[in-house]
């Protein structure tokens, strides 16, 4: 059960087209074990992913395939012929998007770029999906928020199931679980070995944005990206001019909390370098 059934019941009771979901019905414990299997649905490969379900406004007009109720394509590569293609690829990923504050702030700023939130908690994912739906209805005249969606995923294991090599231009890692215990450090979202996977799905020149209010974790993330030959740190001046950094500081849910608590926010951004030539 995801949360007490009552909560889910209430959630459904008040659900109305175009109405914003209420956070209180979607709360879920803030930690998930990235090593356990969960009951995840994910495509066998990026080609098996049905993106048109998530970005219907960007679906290519070619009428193709049987409609699929499942938001995530079944991991069956035989079916990929039936998938409806979309005109654009996802280029921005918010890993661990939580309730989606950053997603909904970024979406109107880059309406032609597909933005995807990835979140491991079921209820929280549902909230973001419902909110995206509601915002699309509310902004039907302007067509805003068509470019934002969210899926439930464990990106530490399944990032390459969703994105092909060099697909992403921006990855956001905002206020990740700090995993204080040394024993738990392997569960952190940033590690030298995992950074190779981020590098794989990013195009050269793309950026990884990280923000946290935990200094220890900030140092950890900065050190581990710096130690990875595929990344270089972006200088302070460039950060100032980057709209995404400002948005990340002020619009993420956690960012707002830290603000209220007058805590410190640590930002560090890394750029994906070209792969070195073979030796």
């Amino acid at each position: 059960m995801a949360g007490p059934p009552k909560k889910r019941q209430k959630r459904d009771d008040i659900k109305q087209e175009g109405q914003m979901p209420q956070k209180k019905f979607y709360r879920q414990r803030a930690h998930a074990n990235p090593f356990s299997d969960h009951d995840l649905k994910y495509p066998a490969s990026p080609a098996a992913m049905d993106w048109s379900q998530h970005y219907p406004a960007f679906a290519a007009t070619v009428p193709a395939g049987v409609p699929n109720d499942d938001p995530i394509a079944t991991p069956d590569h035989d079916k990929q012929n039936h998938l409806q293609p979309i005109s654009k690829q996802v280029q921005v990923a918010d890993i661990g998007c939580g309730f989606g504050g950053l997603l909904f702030a970024l979406a109107p700023k880059m309406p032609e770029t597909l933005i995807l939130g990835l979140e491991i908690r079921t209820s929280v994912t549902e909230f973001v999906q419902e909110k995206a739906k509601a915002l699309r209805v509310q902004h039907a005249s302007t067509g805003l928020y068509q470019n934002v969606s969210c899926i439930r995923a464990n990106t530490m294991k399944f990032l390459p199931n969703f994105f092909v090599k060099g697909q992403l231009s921006k990855i956001f890692l905002c206020f990740p679980d700090p995993h204080f215990k040394a024993r738990k450090h392997k569960a952190r979202i940033v590690s030298t070995t995992l950074n190779s996977e981020y590098a794989f799905v990013m195009k050269p020149g793309g950026k990884v944005y990280t923000i946290t209010d935990v200094e220890d974790l900030h140092v950890w993330m900065a050190e581990h990206f710096a130690a990875h030959p595929s990344f270089e740190r972006v200088g302070e001046e460039e950060l100032e001019g980057d709209e995404c950094v400002g948005t990340m500081r002020t619009e993420t849910e956690e960012g707002k909390k830290v603000e209220r608590n007058s805590g410190t926010k640590y930002v560090v951004v890394f750029r994906r370098l070209e792969d070195p030539p073979w030796p």
Binding site: M1, A2, R29, S36, D37, H38, D39, I120, T122, R152
Partner: peptide, 8 residues
């Protein structure tokens, strides 16, 4: 479907 996400 909800069960997993939460197991520590």
């Amino acid at each position: 479907s909800g069960k997993a996400g939460d197991d520590e």
